[in-house]
Design a protein around this nucleic acid. Structure first.
Lengths: 162, 162
DNA sequence: TATTGTTATACTCTATAACTATA
DNA sequence: TATAGTTATAGAGTATAACAATA
């Protein structure tokens, strides 16, 4: 049926698949804990970003740091705000912007989850090797910081999605 | 507001985030090409798995290889079948199972996409280093093969999702 | 009775566009 | 006019459960 060979790297050599599978392994360990607290991965990313920052975050930077789109962040913030886990404060001299921060309850929640999250992380370190894992993290950061653009071919062809 | 510190690794040291960001970098390059062919990432994963295999794949193994859930694969296959990109053939001595394969049109489509996919991959290799990338792939595979279970704490608590 | 696969359901995210308010 | 953010909309995946057909 597929008589002619298909000149393409094997599925195993696919970088996106390898990244996905590695991430799946890790998330399988983290998900039950998040589910217990009624948090989606994405909601947790937002809480974590807010917990990690020392400067007040606005919606735009928050979206970028969490690898979420602005509309997704908008909805997630509405949800977290309804649960009193985050609060907003309009920026002084620009009424369009607001900074987001954890409420005390939000910080408490992160503090509650942190130990099991760290424990899970430590288990991965034990099995994979701490040094090895930290080298892997560096490589991933370097890879993520490559500033490549999609092929010119693929850009600006507004009929592409039609 | 977050007076007490939160004892947790920095966002930057988060393995799931690093994996996600690296994957986002790669997918940003691949997505426009897939969109041009009206394929989602997941549909492409299925086509790619089918193109890569030498043995006929059933739905279960296909779901596992693509890191998709069976219901997702079910719908994706229905879509791809309607587009005449894949075909099914009932297994001889077990009427429940069927094997999935690319149609000629499906194989042609993969063959059409393969060159730009490879070109994109080569650009990543150029910028990151081919050896370095191949070492990274190995590490990712090793990481993905860790057979860790979620904490006992998190398992079997059927009220967890409630 | 267990297994393969599909269907049903509820929820969420993605992606784009349109819109509001502000600058 | 441009920007920050929200809302609207369409489409799809995730996750679980329920179900059908078959073994």
């Amino acid at each position: 049926m597929t008589a002619e060979p298909i000149p393409m790297r094997s599925f195993r050599q696919s970088l996106p698949m390898a990244l996905l599978e590695a991430r799946e392994m890790a998330m399988r360990l983290f998900r039950p804990m998040l589910a217990r607290h009624d948090l989606t991965e994405q909601q947790w990313r937002v809480l974590r970003a807010l917990a990690a920052t020392d400067v007040p975050l606005e919606v735009g930077p928050l979206a970028q740091q969490t690898s979420l789109l602005a509309p997704s962040v908008s909805r997630i913030l509405a949800n977290l705000e309804a649960r009193h886990l985050i609060g907003r404060r309009t920026v002084e001299h620009d009424q369009r912007r607001s900074t987001i921060s954890l409420t005390d309850a939000g910080a408490d929640l992160v503090r509650t989850i942190a130990p099991s999250s760290e424990a899970t992380y430590n288990r991965i370190e034990e099995h994979f090797g701490a040094d090895r894992l930290s080298r892997l993290l560096e490589e991933l950061h370097d890879l993520a910081s490559l500033e490549l653009e999609p092929d010119a071919h693929d850009v600006g062809t507004s009929e592409g999605a039609a």
